[in-house]
């Protein structure tokens, strides 16, 4: 059986003229498929909205509370496990040094003192070099270049502060 144009009218819920309506009625009497199409369409349009059982919002609030607690607990356990794991890893990495330190502490202490002395002298040397550079550079750069440089640094600082502020104020969910 040819269902056109009736199937098209029914599927697209097209408005029909009284003449078309009569034609459609006639077709529906003889066509079980189009009749089923019309009937299911009508049912779909008239079926009521189903409501949830009363107290839905209270149940949601309770569930949200539970979820928040579970999330907090998970985060806490996560950070505890992460810290313990990190400590264990650190111990594993440091264990050979610790063993050798315990075996001969004098060697280790003299090595550490030597290293600290080296660090101190290096820092002093760097500070001297920095002072020399700082006293020489201003004469090389014009004041305008200094202004541009300082403005750029200030702009970058502002950009960084704004992005941190935006990240902080963004709601992070539960």
């Amino acid at each position: 059986m040819n269902h056109l144009p009736f199937e098209n009218w029914l599927l697209n819920d097209m408005p029909v003229t009284p003449e078309q309506q009569r034609e459609l009625e006639l077709h529906l009497r003889n066509c079980s498929y189009c009749s089923a199409l019309a009937e299911t369409g009508k049912m779909l349009k008239t079926t009521k909205i189903v409501n949830p059982a009363s107290g839905f919002t209270a149940r949601f609030q309770a569930r949200l509370r539970e979820r928040k607690i579970a999330d907090r607990r998970r985060k806490l356990w996560g950070s505890v496990l992460f810290t313990l794991g990190g400590l264990a890893f650190l111990m594993w990495i440091l264990s050979p040094y610790v063993v050798s330190f315990v075996a001969s502490p004098a060697t280790w202490i003299s090595a550490i003192v030597g290293w600290l002395v080296f660090l101190g002298t290096t820092l002093f040397a760097l500070a001297d070099a920095g002072r020399v550079i700082l006293s020489v550079i201003p004469s090389f750069l014009p004041p305008f270049a200094w202004m541009v440089l300082l403005s750029m640094i200030a702009g970058l600082g502002l950009l960084w502060s704004v992005s941190i502020w935006r990240l902080v104020r963004m709601p992070q969910g539960v």
Binding site: L10, L11, L28, R29, S32, Y33, C34, S35, A36, L37, E39, T40, G41, L44
Partner: peptide, 21 residues
Amino acid sequence: SRRALAEMWQVEKPRAYPERR
């Protein structure tokens, strides 16, 4: 979906539609 529903409806309820008609 509408076609599928109509076809299933025909199979499920072959005798009901003449009465309703």
